[in-house]
Measured scan of single mutants.
Amino acid sequence: MDVFMKGLSKAKEGVVAAAEKTKQGVAEAAGKTKEGVLYVGSKTKEGVVHGVATVAEKTKEQVTNVGGAVVTGVTAVAQKTVEGAGSIAAATGFVKKDQLGKNEEGAPQEGILEDMPVDPDNEAYEMPSEEGYQDYEPEA
Rank of each mutant, 00 (worst) to 15 (best):
Q99E: 08
A107I: 03
K96A: 13
Q109Y: 08
Y136Q: 09
F4C: 01
A27S: 04
N122E: 12
G25F: 14
T22M: 11
V66P: 01
E20N: 12
G7R: 15
G47K: 07
A90L: 14
Y136D: 02
E28G: 03
V15W: 07
G93A: 14
V40C: 04
K58Y: 13
E13Q: 05
V55C: 06
E46F: 06
D119F: 03
S87L: 12
K23F: 15
E105D: 10
K10R: 13
V77C: 13
T92Q: 03
V74H: 01
T44Y: 14
A56I: 14
K10I: 14
A85R: 03
G41H: 14
P117E: 02
G93I: 09
A11F: 12
S9K: 13
A76H: 10
G73M: 14
V82E: 02
T72A: 13
D121N: 08
A29I: 13
G25A: 15
H50F: 13
A19Q: 01
A76F: 09
V3G: 01
E139K: 09
Q79R: 08
K58G: 00
S87F: 06
A11V: 15
G47L: 12
E105S: 07
A124N: 04
A53H: 15
T64S: 06
K12F: 03
K6S: 02
I112R: 08
K43H: 05
Q99D: 10
V95L: 11
V16S: 08
K43C: 12
P128N: 12
A107P: 07
S9R: 14
V77L: 14
V15H: 01
G101V: 09
G73T: 14
Q134A: 06
E35T: 09
T75C: 10
E126Y: 08
F94Q: 04
A89H: 04
V118D: 08
L113E: 12
P120K: 07
E110D: 12
E83T: 07
F4P: 00
G84S: 10
G51T: 11
A90W: 13
Q24H: 07
V37G: 01
E123I: 10
E35R: 08
A91D: 04
G51R: 08
A11P: 00
P128K: 04
K80Y: 06
V82P: 02
A30Q: 01
T44D: 00
D135P: 04
V49G: 04
V3E: 00
E61C: 07
Q99K: 02
V55L: 13
N65S: 13
T72Y: 03
E137M: 05
